[in-house]
Nucleic acid binder design. Structure first.
Lengths: 343, 343
DNA sequence: CTAAAATATTTGCGCGCGTAAAGTTTTTAT
DNA sequence: ATAAAAACTTTACGCGCGCAAATATTTTAG
């Protein structure tokens, strides 16, 4: 363990019997020094636990080894889970991830990006708030820092977008629901901030048209990120008013579905795939808790791992390549149908 | 907006017609310079959006304005919510919070603390993994950096602990369940990492003794942080085996209860406070999703705001005071009974 | 209006490390 | 064994700012 305290790289270099520039080289890439030298440094490292001062390092490097990760709302387990995957992959690649949540607040998103810019990160993985985001700020930021967008696509922002194919997933879900019972109504939050919400409504309308079914979109008011609460409160009203044209409801996302399930339960309406039940409810995303609702939620699974992996890979190739690619790429992954008891 | 680019404080000072040291003083505390000078700086700030280099600042300051926040598992909405509160309070106080999740892995917790130490933060708010934590590392860390523990108490670690009074909360819950029906069995994960689990079991046993009731603790195996999964899988076995001595189950935490609710539902066992139901299930924590389970979960609410506020306050007084207090303080908040339909 | 107090400025050092150039030693290839 | 290549050492500068001391200016008090 540590004996006397080492104050800087100079002192440490003296202790290890290697010159300071070589020690510096070692810390930037241990493989870049001769094996014999490496051993000497690492021996010294065991004796005098020394770490280079990160602030001094970052001040002098043109680019840091930091990767910024920004999500719109970390208290949403979906983003928490994605963030966890992203963090792990960055760590594996030798970068230090720095995690930020906009907490649903556009001003905070701007502040975070401002802070991030002054951190001179190697790159940023950004899931923007969406409609609420300040596009000008986003645009400026992406011009300066290699940025990969994920989850929420905003046209023209960032050098790449990784997300899921809402058209594919919703069509599949509509198809399934239609084959197994009454065609679905679509339950969503009006003017939702997340751009996926829009795409899903449109995908629903297209799918229904394709299957020659009459669509019904129920848009309810709801602010903020308390989707369960909106699903519950507004769902109760809609169910009580018997607004749903069919017994099957496709929710814009799982959190809304969880709220709607809760509303149905309270009103004594049985939900389930079995025809004995009064209602069927399906969601979208395969939220971490969707397996544990009562009844368990039928939904479309997003491929968390694939989205995380591809986002990080895309960013790393951008970083390695040196410059931002000419053309903006969009990668969409297919969802997987998860048949559970609710629909 | 920004005209020509400012490279450093020297250039910016020239543009604003103020000397560099004064500008430096301004950025450390805008109120410490004369109003006239302040105006001149802020006028210049509007023209040439300049920000001091954080790395240069942090390298030269003895203490940074960073507050480290470390939670054991961010994908648990309980910690996500606490983290959100803590972040906001740090921001309000002019600090920059830096959020880390140990993701349930002790090595990662150690790495995070190592990184954090080299960041020379003004202070750290730490919710340790608990039993799995490397106590030696924690101890060393707390000796160097002002640290407030929250949620999980580890004897002697950190200068203060802020959490909830498991004795009070569990006693209240046992009392309530006993008054309104059969006395509760206690459902928990064997050898849980979190120290609260232990305290709750003991509190349960004490409470049952106090009310002269026969206790029954059911400890199931479960690794990791997938509490719902454990509650569901093991819960199904326990219910099927009719192990529970009474019809009332008090779960060690809400996430376990959510899993158990799911198990009961699958087995066709109706859960609810109403005597018509076959079973009653209660949880602990008032997890963000507890309101939306079917039936909604009766539980004890932790006072998120109080715990966050007090943790931050305690840390700030430590930071202001300069040195760590002689005596370690422990602050425990009472829980609030939340009566919902499940028990 | 003058002295005292408060605030600015000037000057200059230091933080810990990246990095480049020139010279030296070691390794690898022929 | 010798030349070429690779790795290392030495030397030196610069990054952008904190901070301290001495000096100059402005504000406030009497």
């Amino acid at each position: 363990m540590g004996d006397s305290k080492i104050r800087n790289m100079e002192e440490f270099a003296a202790k290890s019997g290697v010159s300071r520039p070589t020690v510096s080289k070692y810390f930037n890439d241990p493989g870049s020094v001769r094996p014999a030298t490496r051993t000497r440094i690492e021996e010294a490292l065991k004796q005098y636990d020394y770490r280079p001062n990160i602030y001094a390092i970052n001040q002098n490097r043109r680019l840091t080894k930091t990767i910024g990760i920004v999500v719109p709302y970390l208290a949403d387990p979906f983003f928490a889970e994605i963030a966890r995957n992203l963090e792990n992959r960055c760590l594996d690649a030798g970068f230090s991830p720095s995690l930020f949540s906009s907490h649903g607040r556009p001003e905070l998103e701007n502040d975070i990006l401002d802070n991030l810019r002054s951190m001179r990160p190697a790159g940023v993985l950004l899931a923007p708030l969406g409609r609420a985001s300040d596009k000008t700020t986003l645009e400026k930021f992406c011009a300066d820092i290699p940025t990969v967008l994920f989850d929420s696509n905003i046209d023209g922002i960032g050098s790449a977008f990784i997300g899921m194919d809402n058209g594919q997933s919703i069509t599949m879900l509509v198809d399934y629901l239609h084959r197994t019972g009454e065609p679905p109504c679509f339950f969503e939050i009006r003017n939702a901030a997340n751009p996926n919400a829009n795409k899903r409504r449109i995908a629903y309308l297209n799918a229904m048209a394709q299957f020659r079914l009459r669509p019904q979109v129920i848009s309810v008011d709801g602010a903020g990120w308390d989707f369960e609460d909106t699903g519950y409160g507004e769902g109760k009203k809609v169910i009580a008013a018997k607004t749903f044209a069919t017994n099957t409801v496709l929710c814009s996302n799982d959190r809304l579905a969880i709220g709607l399930l809760s509303a149905a339960f309270e009103l004594g309406i049985s939900v389930g795939h079995d025809p004995a039940n009064a209602m069927r409810i399906a969601g979208h995303d395969d939220h971490p808790f969707a397996r544990f609702t009562c009844p368990p939620l039928t939904t479309v699974a997003q491929d968390y791992a694939a989205i995380s992996d591809r986002s990080v890979e895309t960013l790393f190739t951008m970083i390695d390549g040196g410059e931002t690619p000419k053309t903006r790429s969009e990668t969409l992954f297919d969802g997987t149908l998860v048949m559970r008891a609710s629909a």
